[in-house]
Computed example of a mutant assay.
Amino acid sequence: MEPVVRLVGGESRCAGDLELKHLREWRTLNHNALWNLKTAAVVCRELDCGSAVSVGEREVSSHRLVWDISLTCVQSGSALRNCAESFSTGQIVTLTCSDSVRLVNGTGLCSGRLEVNSDQSNPSWSSVCEADFDQQDAQVVCRQLGCGAPSVLQGALYGEGEAPMGTKEFQCGGHESALLDCSSASERNTCSPGTAVSLTCSEPVVRLVEGKSRCAGTLEVKQEGEWRPVWGYTSLSPYRFWTLKTAGVVCRVLYCGSAVSVGVRYVSSYRSVWGISPACVQSEPDLRECAEASAAAKFVTLTCSGKPISDTTNDIISHIF
């Protein structure tokens, strides 16, 4: 069957600007309230690209014709192309899927039976033997999926699926950015029934959204069960003191390397935010402990290098969050 969705312009076929073919024409999609990780997960599955890692918007230099997707239409169960209408915008949807790991049959985006794909050009997903997987491997998978630290590692918790065959024994140090970056031992021919790895990662409490990758975008923190963007204020000057040093704490928490830039994003009206003093971040790395309810029309934006720093600082911070 001819594909009707694709990702273009990214580092792989599983990342980039989202395009939809409708009325025989490929167009990018307008970024609207429909696009969250739950919606992105549907696209990633359709592309056989694993789990959704991030969804964002990209500003283009001038308005262009795109497809706009009706939220009501999608919620009714219709296919994306049946919900498309012509629209003109300068903001388009970008997606990143995990491409080599996914969690299936779980209760959310951060839980399920682990499956691995080692060939992006010809996807073939297989479970992993419990005996070939440990806590350090789990840390890498949870990080790759944009989730928090692993909390449960258990065989067959989310169903057995097909018996794992030809699986590798992964040997991760815990600091790698992707499971396939880890070294691996020789493959097993098969595993015993009931031993496929199931994994539950904790839900993240800090994230970067609406950027080109999970390591860039608007800073958000989850406090009291609610995600809000961050405004970094002090009593003297709101913004001036969010420096690269402060931003570096967030980048390390996300295993995104070092801070490259810190900026501000302006929006049209005041919104609920978490006010976070940079001074508090320096003394208390858990951003939740620094959050105060506030309202602002300016949000902190960060760009991290995206390359994990392999040192003990990352290991310490990963336990805090």
Rank of each mutant, 00 (worst) to 15 (best):
R207Y: 08
W26C: 07
Q75I: 04
L7F: 10
M1D: 14
T107S: 13
V273M: 09
T312D: 10
S88P: 00
L157R: 14
G173W: 02
V4N: 15
K38Y: 14
S78Y: 15
E2R: 09
N30R: 13
Q136H: 06
T243E: 02
C83R: 02
I316W: 07
V250G: 11
F321Y: 13
L103E: 07
V140M: 08
I92H: 02
D68F: 00
T94Y: 04
Y266W: 04
C14G: 04
R207P: 03
G10D: 07
E203K: 12
M1P: 14
S70R: 05
V42M: 13
R188A: 12
K307L: 08
S54M: 15
E284G: 02
A84D: 06
Q171R: 15
A131L: 06
R265L: 14
S98C: 07
S305H: 06
S318D: 06
S88W: 06
C97D: 04
S12Q: 02
S192N: 10
G146W: 08
V60M: 11
V250H: 08
A297I: 01
Q75T: 06
G148K: 12
E130N: 11
L208H: 08
V281L: 15
G50Y: 05
S62N: 03
V152M: 01
A185R: 14
V141K: 04
S237A: 13
W67K: 06
L199Q: 08
D119Q: 13
L145E: 09
T243I: 08
A216K: 10
S88E: 08
R228Q: 13
R13F: 02
V60I: 15
T301M: 07
M165R: 09
K212V: 06
I309V: 15
R143T: 11
V264R: 14
V197Y: 05
P238M: 00
C142E: 09
R13E: 06
S121I: 03
C44Y: 12
T167Y: 00
R188G: 12
S78W: 15
E85D: 10
S318Y: 07
T218W: 00
A247S: 14
V116F: 10
R252M: 10
E169H: 14
V197Q: 07
S198P: 06
A293T: 12
A247G: 15
A84R: 01
A295C: 09
V281M: 15
S183Q: 14
D181V: 04
K222D: 07
S61L: 13
S78N: 14
L29M: 11
S86C: 00
Q75A: 06
T313A: 07
V116D: 09
S100I: 05
V262H: 01
G77C: 10
S268F: 09
A41I: 00
L71A: 07
K38S: 14
Y266M: 09
A138N: 04
G166L: 03
A196E: 02
